[in-house]
């Protein structure tokens, strides 16, 4: 439950759901824009509002795609390690 809450807090801020990422203080804004969370709210919002044009939009989507691949295989690897150390009593 704690992890869930922490995730909610981080995602809300860094995805731009609370406030547009450009409004965040300097470095945080840059970090948030390149983070995987930006793809949740910020990227689609920027594209739909016409704030970013063709090429920039493509770059944003490409970054998102890169994160998808990285996180997919990262999560699979982590899961593999975790399952080896997991014991379940009962069900």
């Amino acid at each position: 439950m704690g992890v869930q809450w922490a995730r909610l807090a981080v995602v809300n801020l860094l995805s731009g759901a609370l406030i547009p990422l450009a409004y965040l203080p300097g470095r945080l804004a840059t970090a948030a824009q390149w983070s995987p969370f930006a793809g949740l709210t910020s990227t689609p919002a920027l594209i739909f509002l016409g704030r970013v044009g063709g090429r920039e939009a493509l770059v944003l989507v490409a970054v998102q795609l890169g994160w998808v691949l990285a996180l997919w295989f990262g999560a699979r690897g982590l899961w593999g390690v975790a399952v080896r150390r997991l014991t379940v009593n009962g069900g």
């Binding site: 439950m1 704690g2 992890v3 869930q4 809450w5 922490a6 909610l8 807090a9 981080v10 809300n12 801020l13 609370l18 406030i19 965040l24 945080l28």
Partner: peptide, 18 residues
């Protein structure tokens, strides 16, 4: 429990950052 406590603090911090 510790994670939950830390997450609660993080929530508040995020709100203030906002």
């Amino acid at each position: 429990f510790a994670i939950l406590a830390a997450a609660t603090v993080l929530m508040r911090v995020v709100n203030v950052v906002f």
